[in-house]
Amino acid sequence: HIECVVCGDKSSGKHYGQFTCEGCKSFFKRSVRRNLTYTCRANRNCPIDQHHRNQCQYCRLKKCLKVGMRREAVQRG
C-alpha cells in the first residue's frame, strides 16, 4: 500500500496533490478552508508521524505544505 507522505499512515489516495491518509486530508482541508493559524509550543520541528500527528497542528500543517500539498487545490466551502 501507499503511505501518507505526511504521517506515514495508510494513504487513501491522492488529495490536494499528494498521497495522504483521510486524517491528514481532512486536517489540511479544514486548516485551509477556515484559514487557521497555529502556533508551535516547541521548536517548530515536532515529529509528525502516525502516533504524533495530532500533537502539534503547526508542524503538521508545515509538513503538509513541505511535502507539496497545495492550498489552491482545496475548494472553498
Rank of each mutant, 00 (worst) to 15 (best):
H1R: 11
E3P: 05
E3S: 09
C4S: 03
C4K: 01
C4R: 03
C4G: 02
C4A: 00
V5S: 14
V6Y: 04
V6E: 01
V6G: 01
V6S: 01
C7L: 01
C7E: 02
C7K: 03
G8Y: 02
G8P: 03
D9P: 01
D9S: 10
D9C: 02
D9A: 07
D9V: 05
K10C: 08
K10A: 05
K10R: 06
K10I: 12
K10Q: 12
S11F: 13
S11P: 15
S11D: 05
S12M: 08
G13Y: 01
G13E: 13
G13R: 06
G13A: 15
H15E: 15
H15T: 05
H15F: 13
H15A: 10
Y16A: 04
Y16H: 01
Y16Q: 13
Y16F: 15
Y16E: 09
G17S: 06
G17L: 04
Q18H: 10
Q18G: 09
Q18L: 11
Q18M: 13
Q18S: 10
Q18Y: 04
Q18C: 15
T20W: 09
T20A: 09
T20D: 00
T20Y: 07
C21Y: 00
C21L: 00
C21G: 01
C21W: 00
E22N: 07
E22C: 07
G23C: 11
G23K: 10
G23V: 04
G23W: 15
C24G: 00
C24Y: 05
K25D: 15
K25R: 13
S26W: 11
S26I: 02
F27P: 00
F27C: 00
F27A: 01
F27N: 06
F27D: 01
F28L: 01
F28N: 01
K29P: 03
K29Y: 03
R30S: 07
R30C: 13
R30W: 07
R30V: 13
S31A: 12
S31H: 07
S31M: 01
V32W: 01
V32C: 01
R33C: 02
R33E: 13
R33D: 11
R34I: 13
R34Y: 05
R34S: 06
R34C: 01
R34E: 14
R34L: 07
N35I: 03
N35E: 14
N35P: 04
N35L: 03
N35T: 04
N35M: 08
L36A: 09
L36M: 08
L36Y: 03
T37Y: 05
T37G: 13
T37N: 13
T37I: 10
T37S: 11
T37Q: 08
Y38M: 09
Y38C: 01
T39H: 04
T39A: 15
T39S: 14
T39D: 14
C40V: 01
C40Y: 02
R41E: 14
R41M: 13
R41T: 09
R41P: 15
R41C: 12
A42V: 13
A42G: 15
A42D: 11
N43D: 15
N43A: 14
R44F: 06
R44Q: 10
R44I: 12
R44Y: 04
R44S: 10
N45K: 05
C46Y: 01
C46H: 03
P47E: 10
P47A: 11
P47Y: 10
I48C: 05
I48H: 00
I48Y: 03
I48G: 03
I48Q: 07
D49W: 07
D49I: 06
D49V: 07
D49F: 11
D49G: 08
Q50P: 13
Q50N: 11
H51V: 09
H52G: 12
H52M: 10
R53M: 08
R53G: 12
R53K: 06
R53V: 09
N54C: 05
N54I: 13
N54P: 11
Q55T: 08
Q55M: 07
Q55Y: 10
Q55I: 11
C56I: 02
C56D: 01
Q57M: 08
Q57I: 13
Y58S: 11
Y58K: 04
C59Y: 01
C59T: 02
C59E: 02
C59L: 00
R60Q: 15
R60M: 15
R60T: 11
R60P: 02
L61D: 01
L61R: 01
L61C: 02
L61H: 02
L61T: 01
L61F: 09
L61G: 02
K62A: 12
K62E: 15
K63E: 07
K63F: 04
K63T: 04
C64S: 03
C64G: 02
C64T: 01
L65E: 13
L65Q: 12
L65W: 07
L65P: 01
K66V: 12
V67R: 07
V67Y: 07
G68Y: 04
G68V: 02
G68T: 02
G68L: 03
G68W: 02
M69K: 00
M69A: 00
M69Q: 01
M69D: 00
M69I: 03
R70Y: 05
R70D: 14
R70F: 11
R71G: 09
R71W: 08
R71P: 12
A73F: 12
A73H: 12
A73R: 05
V74W: 05
V74Y: 04
V74F: 07
V74G: 08
Q75D: 15
Q75G: 13
Q75E: 14
R76N: 14
R76D: 15
R76M: 10
R76T: 12
R76L: 12
G77M: 11
